[in-house]
Design a protein around this nucleic acid. Structure first.
Lengths: 102, 102
DNA sequence: CTTGTATATCGAACTTTTACGATATATATT
DNA sequence: AATATATATCGTAAAAGTTCGATATACAAG
């Protein structure tokens, strides 16, 4: 979050309601993804998020990739699943950066 | 800044480097717009901002309109000039909103 | 009332983003 | 090995954003 190129990527990532919604859901996985059989330690697996957005699998995957490229989420691959969770450190770093720069 | 529709407009407004740059310039008008003959009480007039962006007059006007629609700047018309300045209250409200919602 | 200046709006070209279905890749199961 | 499942990537079409020059509007000055 030191240079402006990254800040730009983060703001653009946040500039879509679906991506903000995903980040919001990931704040309370147990609440929004209760159907997930595995524990939320590693995060929420992509397919659960697909279902919730109502968008196609490929579109949701692209949104997740954007969030990941921006550093707002981190991933963990377990078997054939890829779990997503918030990267709280980077989110806080972004909030700090925008608070001082804006 | 109470509902999400406005937050969306603000984030989208911030999702362009030129618009963020304009907001940054407006933090220190005396520094960045020293050529402006009138005092900065009312803000910086649009034409000065045009010159600084290097973009066309119409494009800069559109960026300013986006910032204004989002509530990030306020305007004051004096004669044939329209002065722009930051709306600090709304900027702070946005920072609060995104800090809690994100 | 004409001319000039400041800004906004319009219309069109171009670029970027979004979205989808189809396909590819990787892993797991049989 | 063959099949099934989870996710990513590709190709493409539609939508949104950016930019420009030209024009409109509003005000000021002569």
């Amino acid at each position: 979050m030191t240079d402006n190129i990254e800040l730009d990527a983060v703001i653009k990532a946040l500039a879509h309601p679906v991506r903000r919604q995903i980040l919001a859901w990931l704040k309370e996985p147990e609440r929004w993804f209760a159907e997930q059989p595995t524990p939320f330690e590693a995060g929420v697996c992509a397919g659960m998020i697909d279902k919730k957005t109502g968008l196609s699998q490929s579109t949701t995957s692209a949104h997740l990739a954007t969030l990941h490229r921006a550093g707002l989420v981190e991933t963990q691959k377990i078997g054939q699943w890829i779990y997503y969770k918030r990267n709280e450190a980077n989110i806080r770093a972004f909030l700090d950066a925008i608070s001082t720069s804006l």
